[in-house]
Simulated scan of single mutants.
Amino acid sequence: MTSKKKLIRVTTVPSSLIGLLSGQLTFMKRYYEVIGITSPNEYDFLKKFTDAEEIEVIPVEMTRKITPLKDFLALIRLYKIFRSEKPFIVHSHTPKAGTLSMLAAKLAGVPHRLHTIAGLPLLEAKGLKRILLNQVEKITYACATKIYPNSFGLKDIILEEKFTNTNKIKVIGNGSSNGIDTSFFESDLISSQEKNALKQHLGLTNKDFVFVFIGRLVTDKGINELIKAFVEINKRHPHTKLLLVGGYETVLDPISAYSMETIKTHKNIVPVGWQDDVRPYFAISHALVFPSYREGFPNVVLQAGAMKLPCIVSNINGCNEIISDNVNGFIIPVKNTESLIIHMERLYAMNPEDLHIMGEKSREMIISKFERKFVWDCLLNEYQQIENKLEPNFKTTI
Score class of each variant (00 low, 15 high):
Val110Pro: 02
Ile157Gln: 06
Gly179Met: 02
Asp220Ile: 11
Ala97Thr: 05
Arg216Asp: 12
Gly359Glu: 10
Ile139Met: 09
Lys70Ser: 15
Asp44Ile: 08
Ala257Thr: 15
Ile157Asn: 10
Thr67Arg: 15
Pro14Arg: 02
Lys47Arg: 14
Leu120Tyr: 02
Leu217Asn: 02
Gly318Trp: 04
Glu232Leu: 04
His112Leu: 07
Gly222Gln: 05
Tyr281Cys: 10
Ile55Thr: 08
Glu371Arg: 09
Ser192Ile: 08
Asn224Leu: 08
Lys228Arg: 14
Asp377Tyr: 04
Gly359Cys: 00
Ser285Ala: 14
Lys5Asp: 10
Glu33Pro: 00
Asn268Thr: 11
Lys70Glu: 14
Gln135Glu: 01
Lys335Leu: 03
Phe88Ala: 11
Arg113Gly: 07
Glu61Tyr: 12
Gln303Tyr: 01
Ser15Met: 08
Arg346Ala: 13
Asp71Val: 08
Arg130Gln: 09
Glu137Cys: 06
Thr219Gln: 14
Lys70Tyr: 10
Leu380Glu: 05
Cys311Asp: 04
Lys221Glu: 06
Ile227Asp: 12
Asn268Ser: 14
Ser259Cys: 14
Lys4Cys: 03
Thr116Cys: 10
Pro59Glu: 08
Arg113Val: 15
Asp71Leu: 01
Ile331Tyr: 04
Glu137Tyr: 03
Val60Thr: 06
Ile117Asp: 03
Pro40Val: 05
Ile89Phe: 06
Arg9Glu: 05
Phe230Pro: 14
Thr67Glu: 15
Lys146Thr: 09
Glu33Asn: 09
Val300Asn: 12
Leu133Glu: 06
Asn393His: 13
Ala283His: 08
Glu61Met: 14
Val110Leu: 10
Glu321His: 07
Leu252Tyr: 12
Leu133Cys: 00
Leu244Ala: 12
Cys311Ile: 00
Ile158Phe: 13
Glu295Asp: 04
Ile227Phe: 08
Leu309Asn: 03
Ile367Tyr: 00
Ser15Val: 11
Gly179Trp: 11
Tyr79Asn: 13
Glu353Asp: 11
Ile386His: 05
Val136Glu: 00
Asp377Lys: 15
Ser16Ile: 03
Asn381Thr: 13
Thr250Val: 15
Ile169Ser: 05
Leu17Val: 04
Gly153Cys: 09
Ser22Lys: 10
Glu160Phe: 09
Gly246Asn: 11
Leu340Lys: 12
Ile223Gln: 14
Asn150Cys: 15
Leu7Thr: 00
Thr397Leu: 15
Glu338Tyr: 01
Ile18Glu: 04
Ser39His: 01
Glu56Tyr: 05
Phe290Ile: 06
Glu61Lys: 14
Ile172Phe: 10
Asn393Thr: 13
Ala283Ile: 07
Gln303Cys: 04
Pro59His: 03
Asn317Pro: 07
Asp44Pro: 01
Leu103Gln: 01
His201Pro: 03
Leu379Pro: 13
Asn178Arg: 03
Gly109Thr: 05
Tyr148Thr: 12
Gly98Trp: 00
Ile76Val: 13
Pro333Lys: 00
Asn336Ala: 10
Ser101Ala: 08
Ala105Cys: 04
Tyr348Leu: 06
Glu53Asn: 07
Ile190Tyr: 04
Ala118Gly: 14
Ile180Glu: 04
Lys241Val: 08
Glu194Met: 03
Leu128Arg: 05
Ile233Ser: 06
Val210Thr: 13
